[in-house]
Design a protein around this nucleic acid. Structure first.
Lengths: 166, 166
DNA sequence: CTTGGAATGTCAACAAGGCTGACATAAACT
DNA sequence: AGTTTATGTCAGCCTTGTTGACATTCCAAG
């Protein structure tokens, strides 16, 4: 039961008290958000960084390394370490670009797709049960607030992905 | 504009497509959520771990080390490293428990409170503008979904904090 | 055609912040 | 008196981020 009151002035939901509750909710919810995939990754010698890479390669097959760098917001050295292990384990493959042969286009192998499925199934299961419990109106609000919370750059990337396979 | 459609059966918002958008929204939004405090912490030789400690000590002054361990969900070795630097820099002080003298009760010093304010001001500013843009109904939905996303343990901790100073 | 810059990979080194395991101390409980 | 609890601490390891430097390949523009 969330009791965010909206008074006549429509601003009672902006109190520091309410903002703080939202901040703490984000903190605790993010733990729930990541814990299921994390459990799967333990023991496979993979971490959250691998999950993120696999997720976005699945989402945008054929994406380039540079593109992935932008989305993930890490350095190429950091990403490269992750990609290398994914290559070595045969989860991801890189094809040289046809137009521009400097670019590497990234694709999941069957094995990589299988991992992606197991990770996102776990994550979606929690999400689905949260959505179901909260209902469609709450879900719409949830997404609206999250979008408003993003940086401009991140929002553009999010929108691009969202429309990319809408 | 979030177009989570709720059909007559009320389940159209539970498609994998919609769940995936929610997952990506969490990912990008969390970056926005943390980036403002992070910018402040850079250069002060502090990180996100210090922020979390300072936040919860502010929220529950006099909390014990063990309690903080539960809330943060890290090992005592990890927390101790953080607390030690906060002690040394005079941001946090520990008082021996009166009832149980094994316990250390943690408090922010004036200096610690000042840092906490600057961090939470930054974080609240983004939160406030997101809330304002989204409106009270969306905010209520946001909180409802986040709560539903938490693990049982986390939800209890969140609720305890929420009511602690409601 | 050459040259500059873009896309990528890689080596080395480092830091933050997690983790485990082991051990120490003081205080409370039984 | 002996056990358990709360805490601190040492040592070492892992992941994942960082910077800096350098090599390769290749497009594109002069």
């Amino acid at each position: 039961m969330v009791d965010v009151k909206s008074g006549d002035d429509g601003l009672l939901f902006l109190t520091d008290e309410n903002l703080r509750k939202g901040i703490e909710a984000m903190f605790f919810a993010y733990r729930g958000f990541t814990c299921d995939p994390d459990r799967i990754l333990v023991g496979l010698d993979y971490g959250r960084a691998h999950h993120r890479a696999v997720h976005f390669i699945h989402r945008a097959p054929g994406t380039t390394v540079g593109n992935l760098l932008d989305i993930l917001g890490v350095t190429k050295q950091s990403l490269n370490r992750v990609l290398r292990s994914l290559f070595e384990d045969g989860l991801v493959e890189a094809r040289v670009g046809r137009r521009d042969r400097r670019e590497r286009h990234l694709y999941l192998t069957e094995k990589g797709a299988a991992l992606e499925r197991s990770l996102s199934d776990a994550q979606r299961a929690r999400m689905r049960s949260a959505y179901r419990a909260a209902g469609p109106v709450a879900v719409a609000g949830f997404r609206t607030v999250l979008e408003a919370m993003m940086d401009e750059t991140q929002r553009r990337q999010y929108q691009a992905l969202k429309e990319g396979s809408a």
